[in-house]
Measured scan of single mutants.
Amino acid sequence: MDVFMKGLSKAKEGVVAAAEKTKQGVAEAAGKTKEGVLYVGSKTKEGVVHGVATVAEKTKEQVTNVGGAVVTGVTAVAQKTVEGAGSIAAATGFVKKDQLGKNEEGAPQEGILEDMPVDPDNEAYEMPSEEGYQDYEPEA
């Protein structure tokens, strides 16, 4: 019985440690998101679009440190934060509304985080759909 109880105690310690790591990862992701939003706020009209992409990228980098179902929630929060940063930029006159959601080359930025393969159960990952990809044929 002692062996059984000791095993359960060790398992509990492992769960607590994993929860603490997840909590730490979420806190880091939130900190990076805040950094990115402050970065966007300090940019001029020309830099705002690039700044919004930076927020998304920093958040995406930190999301990889967070495991399990938390990833889905962090990704949703990050996307809403990026959308909010863009709205703030438009409201303050840093950028025109028609410039939001495009990178410096004018290509749409939507789907940055949505296409990231995420499995809350950590069982399997699927690649994003290939609808947006084109076949590449090298020139002879």
Score class of each variant (00 low, 15 high):
1 M>W: 00
2 D>M: 01
2 D>L: 11
2 D>Q: 11
3 V>K: 03
3 V>R: 14
4 F>W: 07
4 F>I: 03
5 M>A: 02
5 M>N: 04
5 M>Y: 03
6 K>P: 00
6 K>T: 03
7 G>R: 09
7 G>Y: 09
7 G>L: 15
7 G>Q: 08
7 G>V: 09
8 L>E: 00
8 L>C: 02
8 L>Q: 00
9 S>K: 13
9 S>R: 14
10 K>R: 06
11 A>S: 01
11 A>K: 00
11 A>W: 14
11 A>Y: 12
11 A>T: 08
11 A>E: 00
12 K>S: 05
12 K>M: 02
13 E>R: 02
13 E>Q: 13
14 G>E: 04
14 G>D: 06
14 G>C: 12
14 G>K: 15
14 G>P: 01
15 V>D: 00
15 V>R: 00
15 V>F: 02
15 V>K: 00
15 V>S: 00
16 V>C: 09
16 V>I: 13
17 A>D: 07
18 A>K: 03
18 A>R: 03
18 A>H: 03
19 A>I: 15
20 E>R: 03
20 E>W: 07
20 E>V: 04
21 K>P: 00
21 K>T: 05
21 K>N: 03
22 T>M: 15
22 T>Q: 00
22 T>L: 05
23 K>Q: 01
24 Q>Y: 12
25 G>V: 02
25 G>Q: 12
25 G>Y: 14
26 V>D: 00
26 V>G: 01
27 A>F: 15
27 A>C: 02
28 E>R: 14
28 E>N: 07
28 E>Q: 03
28 E>P: 01
28 E>T: 06
29 A>C: 10
30 A>C: 05
30 A>Y: 14
31 G>W: 11
31 G>S: 15
31 G>Y: 09
32 K>R: 08
33 T>Q: 00
33 T>N: 02
33 T>Y: 07
33 T>H: 04
33 T>L: 13
33 T>K: 02
34 K>E: 10
34 K>A: 11
35 E>W: 13
35 E>I: 15
35 E>G: 14
37 V>K: 01
37 V>D: 00
37 V>L: 11
37 V>W: 11
37 V>G: 07
38 L>V: 10
38 L>R: 11
39 Y>S: 09
40 V>E: 00
40 V>R: 01
40 V>Q: 00
41 G>V: 12
41 G>E: 01
41 G>M: 14
42 S>C: 14
43 K>N: 00
43 K>F: 00
43 K>R: 11
43 K>L: 04
43 K>I: 13
44 T>V: 05
44 T>C: 04
45 K>S: 04
45 K>D: 00
45 K>H: 07
45 K>R: 09
46 E>M: 12
46 E>T: 09
46 E>A: 14
47 G>H: 10
47 G>K: 08
47 G>N: 11
47 G>T: 15
48 V>T: 02
48 V>D: 00
48 V>K: 01
48 V>C: 08
49 V>T: 14
49 V>M: 11
49 V>N: 07
49 V>H: 00
49 V>G: 04
49 V>A: 12
49 V>R: 12
50 H>I: 11
50 H>V: 03
50 H>M: 06
50 H>C: 10
51 G>Q: 02
52 V>Y: 12
52 V>T: 00
52 V>P: 01
53 A>H: 03
54 T>N: 11
55 V>M: 12
55 V>N: 01
56 A>G: 03
56 A>L: 02
56 A>F: 13
56 A>M: 14
57 E>R: 06
57 E>S: 02
57 E>C: 08
58 K>M: 14
58 K>E: 03
60 K>T: 05
61 E>W: 05
61 E>H: 05
61 E>F: 09
62 Q>M: 10
62 Q>K: 09
62 Q>N: 05
62 Q>F: 10
62 Q>A: 15
63 V>F: 06
63 V>M: 06
63 V>K: 00
63 V>I: 09
64 T>E: 02
65 N>K: 08
65 N>F: 14
65 N>C: 09
65 N>R: 05
66 V>K: 07
66 V>G: 02
66 V>M: 10
67 G>Y: 15
67 G>W: 11
69 A>R: 13
69 A>M: 11
69 A>E: 02
70 V>R: 01
70 V>C: 15
70 V>T: 03
70 V>G: 02
70 V>D: 03
71 V>A: 10
71 V>F: 15
72 T>P: 00
72 T>Q: 02
73 G>W: 15
73 G>F: 15
74 V>N: 01
74 V>Q: 02
75 T>H: 03
75 T>K: 14
76 A>T: 12
77 V>M: 14
77 V>N: 02
77 V>F: 15
77 V>S: 02
79 Q>R: 01
79 Q>S: 06
79 Q>E: 10
80 K>S: 01
80 K>H: 09
80 K>V: 03
80 K>E: 03
81 T>D: 02
81 T>M: 13
81 T>Y: 07
81 T>N: 02
82 V>C: 08
83 E>V: 01
83 E>W: 08
83 E>M: 07
83 E>K: 13
84 G>D: 07
84 G>E: 08
84 G>M: 14
85 A>M: 15
85 A>W: 03
85 A>Q: 03
85 A>H: 01
85 A>L: 10
85 A>V: 12
85 A>Y: 14
86 G>A: 13
86 G>N: 12
86 G>H: 10
86 G>T: 08
87 S>V: 04
87 S>R: 08
88 I>D: 10
89 A>W: 12
89 A>T: 06
90 A>C: 11
91 A>G: 10
91 A>C: 12
91 A>E: 15
91 A>N: 06
91 A>R: 03
92 T>W: 15
92 T>S: 10
92 T>K: 10
93 G>R: 04
93 G>A: 01
96 K>A: 14
96 K>E: 06
96 K>G: 04
96 K>R: 06
96 K>P: 13
97 K>G: 10
97 K>D: 12
98 D>M: 11
98 D>W: 14
98 D>T: 07
99 Q>E: 08
99 Q>P: 13
99 Q>D: 10
99 Q>G: 09
99 Q>N: 07
100 L>D: 14
101 G>S: 09
102 K>M: 06
102 K>R: 01
103 N>M: 09
103 N>I: 03
103 N>R: 07
103 N>V: 12
104 E>P: 15
104 E>L: 11
105 E>G: 13
105 E>A: 12
105 E>P: 11
105 E>Y: 15
105 E>T: 11
106 G>D: 03
106 G>M: 11
107 A>E: 11
108 P>C: 04
109 Q>V: 15
109 Q>P: 15
110 E>I: 14
110 E>F: 09
112 I>K: 13
112 I>Y: 07
112 I>H: 12
113 L>N: 10
113 L>H: 10
113 L>D: 10
114 E>A: 14
115 D>P: 10
115 D>M: 06
115 D>S: 10
115 D>V: 11
115 D>Y: 07
116 M>L: 03
116 M>I: 05
117 P>Y: 06
117 P>V: 12
117 P>T: 11
117 P>M: 09
118 V>G: 10
119 D>R: 10
119 D>A: 02
119 D>I: 03
119 D>W: 10
120 P>E: 05
120 P>I: 14
121 D>N: 13
121 D>W: 06
122 N>K: 06
123 E>H: 06
123 E>Q: 07
123 E>P: 03
124 A>T: 10
124 A>C: 08
124 A>D: 06
124 A>L: 11
125 Y>C: 15
125 Y>T: 12
125 Y>L: 09
125 Y>Q: 12
126 E>V: 04
126 E>Q: 08
126 E>W: 07
126 E>I: 05
127 M>I: 10
127 M>N: 15
127 M>V: 09
127 M>A: 12
127 M>L: 13
127 M>E: 11
128 P>E: 07
128 P>Y: 14
128 P>V: 03
129 S>G: 06
129 S>N: 11
129 S>L: 15
130 E>R: 01
130 E>L: 04
130 E>G: 11
130 E>H: 13
130 E>Y: 09
131 E>N: 06
131 E>F: 06
131 E>W: 04
131 E>T: 05
132 G>Y: 15
132 G>P: 05
133 Y>F: 14
133 Y>N: 09
133 Y>K: 03
133 Y>C: 13
134 Q>W: 14
134 Q>P: 13
135 D>F: 05
135 D>N: 12
135 D>A: 02
136 Y>N: 05
136 Y>R: 12
136 Y>H: 11
137 E>R: 07
137 E>K: 05
138 P>V: 14
138 P>M: 12
138 P>A: 10
139 E>R: 05
139 E>W: 09
139 E>N: 08
139 E>Y: 02
139 E>F: 10
140 A>R: 12
